[in-house]
Write a protein that binds this DNA or RNA. Sequence first.
DNA 1: CGAGAATAACGCACTGACTGCAAAAATGCG
DNA 2: CGCATTTTTGCAGTCAGTGCGTTATTCTCG
Lengths: 205, 205
Amino acid sequence: MGLRERKKEKTARAIEEAAVRLFAERGYDATTIADIAEAAEIAPRTFFSYFPSKESVLFSDFDAKFRSLADRLAARGDADVLDAVRAWITEMLDAEGVPDQLMIARHQVIDDNEELLAFERQLTTRFEGVIAEAVAVETGLEPQDLHPRLIAAATAAGLGVLRPAPGTPEPAGLAEALEPLDDVLAFLRAGVLALDRRRQDPSRT
Amino acid sequence: MGLRERKKEKTARAIEEAAVRLFAERGYDATTIADIAEAAEIAPRTFFSYFPSKESVLFSDFDAKFRSLADRLAARGDADVLDAVRAWITEMLDAEGVPDQLMIARHQVIDDNEELLAFERQLTTRFEGVIAEAVAVETGLEPQDLHPRLIAAATAAGLGVLRPAPGTPEPAGLAEALEPLDDVLAFLRAGVLALDRRRQDPSRT
DNA sequence: CGAGAATAACGCACTGACTGCAAAAATGCG
DNA sequence: CGCATTTTTGCAGTCAGTGCGTTATTCTCG
């Protein structure tokens, strides 16, 4: 990795750090791009060559997460889709390790802002595409069919619920973070089974 | 209803109609507030005393829908939450009747725009609050607990899936529109049951 | 009907996110 | 070092959205 790329990476981190700090201090809406640029020692215009929008500075890791889920689903062989999702999540939580100050502040900023929560949800829905695709392959249906879309949407929604409700403390350890996951998966698996049954016997209630 | 209110209503409709028409013609992004104002024969500034944002002009009926769901849940007596939701949906579909030109164009505009889909989802998530509350009452849990939140999120997501995938034709009749609903409810009910079981016997897989 | 109060429409000036473009600066390479 | 490439920056502009004061309209009450 050349000097150029290392420098770019450093600048990106500086912007991110400055942005999260300012958001936490004065609030998201009360912080302007100009503020962030000044704190990160760049020109305001430069901000947008690192991040496409003000919101996106809080979700820079999303693309990597998305790709890693897609890869995992593609490489799951004949394992169950939900098993693959579970493995992906535990891996994610494991990789993140103990949340640092920046991560905590970031979550807090997001949770405090309706608009940012919506943005996060919008990102989350991108997961639905890959999940629906995987389910479609597994069931022999098309990705546009109701069942794959439903399972994907419910799974994505379930993942969203994993984040503790605002005001609740962050989970301390990995085991504690995983406990709700099993509830979510139990819920989803039961639903998936019900759909399977319905496909075999449509008259069932 | 006095002249004032009638006139306001008429203006609101005029703005809505002009906006949807222009969005359909030139696209959402290529249409400015000034364009809409001109077409609706109002001053640009006036637009914002009818709608809080450009997006919201496409979702003027949301508040009424939300209230009607909340009322129905509040007045459901000891009926099941999901039954109440089902009743609400059939009532909605019934009340809408045959979709007119404006409604069709509106859906098309929304479906064609990532940002608008996200906005719609954001609105949909407001349903989660009331649903979680109702589930909490029914189960004796708190609305912030995982199970009510999960059920509410999955239900809201399931409702979102009811809209046909982009590119698919709108359902022609009421029966056709209701068919996917039963799949969604079967999915949700199975999940709810699984959570019930888990609460009684946490060691269960 | 005719004040005058209440409410709605409007114009204006402003903020702030975001974009296109072209000049200037930094960097990498031979 | 000098040249090509990439990055940074400044500038001017668009557009959504807001605050505020003014004008026009409608309602109410005498």
